[in-house]
Amino acid sequence: MKSNSISSLRFGTVGFASVLILSVLASVPAFAELKIGLVLERSGKDDKSFNASAYQGVKRAEKELGVTTKTVEAPDNSAYESLQRAFAEKKFDLIIAVGFHQLEAVKKNAARFPDQKFLLVDEDAKAPNVRSVMFEEHEGSYLVGALAALHAKGGKIGFIGGMDVPLIRRFEMGYVAGAKKINPKAEVFSNYLGVTGEAWNNPPKAKELALDQYTRGAEVIFVAAGNSGLGVFDAAAEKQKLAIGVDSNQNWIKPGFILSSMLKRVDESVFDSIKMFKDGKFTTGLIRYGVKSKGVDYALDENNAKLVTAADKKTLEELRADIIKGKIKVPDYYLVQKRK
C-alpha cells in the first residue's frame, strides 16, 4: 500500500512531492484506478453472512470493474472511526462501511471529510456525502412468512432470532404478519438465542431451540441468527421438517430441508454502488432496498425447486405486487418502536 499519505501530512516537503506525484498520476486517465476502502464489522469477512456478502460485492467489483480495493476488519467496536479516517487520509475514493455499528463513526468522518464519499450499509447516516443503504427486512420476511404458512398444514411455525436487537425483531414482525396473511390462525413460536454477541455463533443452542419448536408442532422455522442458523438446519434434517435461511442463499446447506432463504442482497447493493461511482452516477442519501428492487427476496434455486410449488410462487408474487402497490402495509418494527 502507498502509506506515505499519513506522513505527508507531517512532513511538508515530502507531502508536497507526493501530492505532485499523485496529481500527475491523476492526470493520466489510464492509470487512474478507483480506490475502494471496505471497513467490515468485528465479525469479519468470514461470517458467512452479512459481512461476507459485502466482501463478495467488493471482490466482484474488483474483478469486473477493475477497481483497487482494500479490506480491513475492525478489531473492536471503537475502531471504526479511526479505520475509516485512515482511508480518508489516504485519499481513497470511496469508503464502504458495513453494519449499523458504524453509524456514529460515519457521521463523524463524513463531517470531518466533506469531500469524501461514503457508502454506509444498514443504517442511515443522513449526511450529504454519504450514500446510506438500508434493507426492508420486514418485507422479505413477510414473503417467507407467507411461504412458511403455506407449508404448515397444522398452522404452527417458528422463528429463531440471534441476538435480541431491534433489527431481528423487525424480521420477526414481518414474518409473523406474512404468515397471518395466509393463515390468520397461524401460531408462531419465537425464541432468541441471547443478548450477547455469542448469540450469532451458537449453533448447538439454536439446534436445541429448533428441536423444541419442532416437537411443539412447528413445521417450518425461519432463523435469523448468523452462524447459529446451521444448528436449525441440522434440527430440520433430523426431524424431517423445514427451515428458512437468511441473508445469503443458504438453500444448499441442507437441500430438501431448507424451504427457502430470505435474501438480503448486500453484495448487490455494494456492487451497484461501486459501479455507479465508477460511471459517475453515484448518488447520496438513503436508498431503500425492498421487495421492489429485489434487494430483499426469497431464494429459488435447484435445491428447493421441488419444495416451492408453482402455486406458492404465484401467491408470493401477488403479495409482492401488493406490497409494491401499497395495498399491503407490512408492519415495520422500527416504526412501531418509535410510536411507543
Binding site: 500500500m1 502509506s3 482494500k70 480491513v72 476488519e73 475492525a74 478489531p75 475502531a79 479511526s82 479505520l83 485512515a86 482511508f87
Partner: peptide, 13 residues
C-alpha cells in the same frame, strides 16, 4: 491491530 490490517498486505489484525 486495525492499522496492521490496513497498512500491510500480509498481516491482519
Amino acid at each position: 491491530a486495525g492499522s496492521l490490517d490496513l497498512e500491510t498486505d500480509k498481516v491482519t489484525r
